[in-house]
Simulated assay, not measured.
Amino acid sequence: MRAILIAAALLTGVAPAALAQSASPAPAQAAAPPAAPAGAFERDRQSILAQAGQYRVHFDMRENVSFRADYDPLEEKLSGGSEIVRVVHDQGDRISLQHILVMEHDGQSIVVKHWRQDWAYQPEAVLTYAGPNQWTLTPVPADQRQGAWSQTVWQTDDSPRYGGVGRWTYDNGLAAWTSDATWRPLARRDAVRNPVYDRYLGTNRHILKPDGWVHIQDNMKMSGRDGGEPIAIVQEDVINTYDRSSAYSPKPGDDYWAATKAYWAAIRDQWDAVIARDGGVRLAEEGETGAVTGAPLMDLAQQMADGEIAEGDAIARGRAVILEATAAR
Rank of each mutant, 00 (worst) to 15 (best):
G227F: 08
Y170D: 12
Q144F: 03
L10N: 13
S150A: 15
V111S: 05
L283H: 04
I110C: 07
D93M: 03
W264K: 11
Q54N: 05
G294I: 01
I100V: 15
A50T: 14
R45C: 10
I95N: 01
V102A: 07
L10V: 13
V112I: 15
L137F: 02
P230S: 08
Q134G: 00
Y170C: 09
V192F: 09
D72P: 05
W271I: 03
S179D: 03
D93R: 12
E75P: 04
I100Q: 00
R329N: 13
R205T: 15
V214S: 12
K221G: 03
A181I: 15
D306S: 09
D106L: 13
G228A: 09
A316E: 11
A125E: 14
L137C: 03
A181H: 15
G164W: 02
V126N: 07
G228S: 06
P210S: 13
G166M: 14
T260K: 03
Q303K: 15
D93C: 04
P250L: 01
E229P: 11
N64A: 11
P37N: 06
I322N: 07
L101C: 01
L297D: 01
D237V: 10
I267E: 03
L323A: 15
L49Y: 07
Q46S: 15
R167I: 04
I267F: 08
W149Y: 14
E83V: 03
D118N: 06
E285K: 12
